[in-house]
């Protein structure tokens, strides 16, 4: 297992370095190489996850090690896909290092023995996990776009730092792209939560059980719902939308990790 793990990390890291070089040099070739490296890393990662899937005979999200790995995989995949649609090349500078960072963390987290296997052999659970993770990856990218927006906004306002000013896309583009990411992420989050409710109904006999993870998921969902609502009604765009995208993603991370580490609940079973 270790060699393929190292390979994935190396590919993600070299891709990150490539994106950094792209930021400085602005040469299209650097971006293309970095994209290729990230794609190679993603394919290797896909192989790893497929291998685990065959061994476990279900989706490999039995412990924190597997779950984080799955999150990084979803992030890389969603970036690779969205890059095609939006040509937001520089966002790779956010996605690749983030994926690399997660994988390095995963490497150090021991694979704790997983929860009961039967619990995972459920179509609703698989849907729940896959959809939620893809949605969260989109929200992670929305956060990255928000960060880029704030950097560019600051560069233009301050009139001094033109390093970023030249290299980042226009504010309007970042704003619209961030909106699309959030809209996509929010939609998937909603569907993911619903499938989760159905699964909960089947396993525990009730849709909602005031579990901390459920509560925090609800809070995260509300944050994004508010953001989208305000955008449409009151015109929350630009700087404020960018800040909200970052806050929203902080809530996602807390729901994903913080709840497991600091609070207790039935989700703990999955993320030891």
């Amino acid at each position: 297992m270790a060699p393929i793990f190292i390979l994935i990390i190396v590919l993600y890291l070299t891709s990150s370095i490539g994106y950094l070089a792209f930021l400085f040099s602005q040469k299209e070739s650097f971006h293309r190489i970095s994209y290729g490296l990230l794609l190679a890393g993603f394919l290797a990662h896909t192989g790893l996850i497929a291998y685990k899937m065959i061994i476990l005979e279900s989706i490999p999200v039995h412990n924190l090690h597997q779950t984080l790995s799955f999150a990084a995989w979803a992030l890389a995949g969603v970036y690779l896909f969205l890059k095609y649609k939006f040509r937001l090349n520089i966002l790779g500078l956010y996605a690749a290092p983030l994926a690399a960072f997660i994988m390095v963390a995963v490497y150090w987290i021991p694979e704790a023995p997983g929860a009961h296997g039967e619990l995972f052999k459920n179509l609703w659970l698989i849907l729940h996990v896959v959809i939620i993770f893809i949605g969260e990856a989109a929200l992670a990218l929305a956060c990255g776009t928000g960060i880029l927006y704030l950097i560019q906004d600051h560069a233009i306002k301050s009139k001094t730092n033109r390093f970023f000013h030249k290299r980042l896309p226009s504010l309007e583009f970042l704003d619209v792209t961030g909106y699309v990411f959030i809209f996509t992420g929010f939609t998937l989050l909603t569907i993911g939560l619903i499938t989760g409710f159905i699964y909960a109904q089947q396993v525990w006999g009730r849709f909602w059980s005031w579990d901390p993870k459920e509560i925090w998921s609800g809070i995260t969902w509300l944050i994004y719902a508010a953001l989208l609502h305000e955008r449409l009604v009151a015109g929350w765009r630009g700087r404020r939308a960018a800040i909200m995208a970052i806050i929203g993603f902080a809530a996602v991370i807390f729901t994903f990790l913080g709840v497991n580490l600091f609070l207790e609940g039935h989700h703990e079973t999955f993320t030891k």
Binding site: Q152, I156, H165, K166, L168, P169, S170, L171, E172, F173, V176
Partner: peptide, 20 residues
């Protein structure tokens, strides 16, 4: 590569605020 007249610089800047 880079703007050297005022009106050109203004247009370049506008393109960094508005996408089109």
């Amino acid at each position: 590569g880079h703007a050297v007249s005022i009106s050109y610089a203004a247009v370049e800047l506008a393109k960094k605020i508005f996408d089109s």
